[in-house]
Nucleic acid binder design. Structure first.
Lengths: 127, 127
DNA sequence: TAATGAACATAGTGTTCATCA
DNA sequence: TGATGAACACTATGTTCATTA
């Protein structure tokens, strides 16, 4: 009978975290999949976090399904004749949806912050 | 060829998070499985995190395998004749191992804090 | 009925493979 | 070879079932 599974509400999932970055990076500069991956790996190297390529693609595809992003296939910058997939906000309200998603994620990140802070206090706090 | 699978190094896993709490709670007061669960659910209710019972048991069993905790079966406090499983640090060096685990988790929690802070800055920062 | 634990099932995510330019 | 995407496989975790007191 297809019971829905309840998440226990632990920390934010990697997928959601990446979707958030995909949106922000779309707001900032136009990049394609593997470049986004490189940028993120570079940014998070000091933290020991190294996402892999399929998570990036899944995050992007999720956002397409959510009606947030759409693809723009282009010849790669410069010489080669290789086709590459860039992203922009979808149609009329893609950017609105994106902003909404970001607001949710802000709440979620704040929640995670609080939980971890609590854990530090509870397990390592003075007293 | 049984290749080892690499975690990408995203946030701390629920299991590790709970093991940390199990250790600290063992340092503080003696409790048994389902009571630990109740306490944690109560503590994290404001954060929308509600662990389930099997995660607690798995965390405790992990710690036994790690040589950190051992079981003490006792009649439940008060009247009933029900047997309940309490925990204490195992043998000679259980508590040492526990402290070591906690040190690792402290590093890990700090790392998570930083990553989330970075995400907040990167995606919502002023500028 | 409360407690413990295991078995089972699904979601999350890492690895490999296929295809194309 | 770089890029994209899907298929596949394993891990993390949630749900259900069995057993006992």
């Amino acid at each position: 009978m297809s019971e829905k599974r309840n998440p226990s509400g632990f920390l934010v999932k990697q997928r959601a975290f990446l979707k958030l970055y995909m949106i922000t990076m779309t707001e900032q500069e136009r990049l394609y999949g593997l470049r986004l991956l490189d940028v993120l790996r570079e940014e998070f190297r000091p933290f020991g976090y190294r996402p892999n390529h399929s998570e990036i693609y899944k995050a992007l595809h999720d956002l397409i399904e959510d009606g947030v992003l759409e693809q723009v296939k282009k010849k790669k910058e410069g010489m080669k004749l290789q086709e590459v997939v860039y992203y922009r906000f979808a149609g009329e309200n893609g950017h609105e949806k994106a902003k909404k998603y970001k607001r949710q994620l802000k709440v979620e990140l704040d929640r995670c912050q609080s939980m971890i802070q609590k854990a530090v206090r509870d397990n390592f706090g003075i007293k």
